[in-house]
C-alpha cells in the first residue's frame, strides 16, 4: 500500500504497511537519523517529531495516520552547516553527552518555543518532563533552551531597532 507523507517539506510516496510506526519509516525508508528508538512505548521521548506543529512520539504513530500531515524532524531544524537557532544554543552550551536523547529533546523544546517564545524556567521544566536523559545532561539542556530564548529575543530586538 502506498502512503504519502510530508517530511520537512518534502513529499514521499512509500510502499509500506500503514500500521508501521512512523519512527521506522523515518529511519529505515527515509534514512533520517534524528528520531531514535528508545522505548517504543511513548515513555522516553527519544523519537519525538512534530506532527502539524505538535510534538508526538513517532514510535507510536502509525504512518498511515499521518498521511498528508506536516511532519518535522530534527533534520528540519537545521544542518551542521546551517544549524537552527535551538541547535546553535545546544552547540554553544555543549548540551549533550552520549546525545542519544538530544534530537528528541530538541524537537520537544522547539515545540514549546514555537508556541511560547518566552517561557519561564518552570514552564520549560514542565514541558520537558516527558523526555528522559540518562547521562544527566539536564542542566545543560535547560541552559541551552534558555539560551535559545535569549537569542530569539536578541534577534527580535535587533529587528525592532532596524529602520
Amino acid at each position: 500500500m502506498t502512503v504519502t507523507i510530508t517530511v520537512n517539506g518534502a513529499d514521499h510516496a512509500l510502499d509500506v504497511d500503514p500500521a508501521t510506526p512512523l519512527l521506522y519509516v523515518l529511519r529505515d525508508d527515509l534514512e533520517l537519523n534524528g528520531a531514535k528508538y528508545g522505548c517504543g512505548l511513548g515513555q522516553c521521548g527519544a523519537c519525538t517529531v512534530h506532527i502539524d506543529g505538535k510534538p508526538a512520539f513517532s514510535c507510536l504513530t502509525p504512518v498511515g495516520a499521518v498521511a498528508g500531515r506536516r511532519i518535522r524532524t530534527v533534520e528540519g531544524l537545521g544542518s551542521t552547516q546551517a544549524p537552527g537557532l535551538l541547535q546553535q544554543a545546544f552547540e554553544t552550551e555543549q548540551a549533550a553527552q552520549c546525545g542519544y536523547c538530544i534530537a528528541g529533546m530538541l524537537m520537544r523544546a522547539q515545540a514549546l518555543l514555537d508556541r511560547n517564545p518566552d517561557p519561564d524556567e518552570a514552564q520549560i521544566r514542565a514541558h520537558m518532563q516527558t523526555n528522559l536523559c540518562r547521562c544527566g545532561t539536564h542542566m545543560r539542556i535547560l541552559r541551552a533552551i534558555r539560551r535559545a530564548v535569549a537569542m530569539h529575543k536578541g534577534i527580535q530586538a535587533a529587528q525592532e531597532v532596524r529602520p
Binding site: 500503514p18 500500521a19 514510535c59 507510536l60 504513530t61 502509525p62 498511515g64 495516520a65
Partner: peptide, 11 residues
C-alpha cells in the same frame, strides 16, 4: 485495526 497495530499493540 491498522491504527491499533501501530499505536497500541506495543503495549
Amino acid at each position: 485495526a491498522s491504527l491499533f497495530a501501530g499505536a497500541c499493540a506495543g503495549c
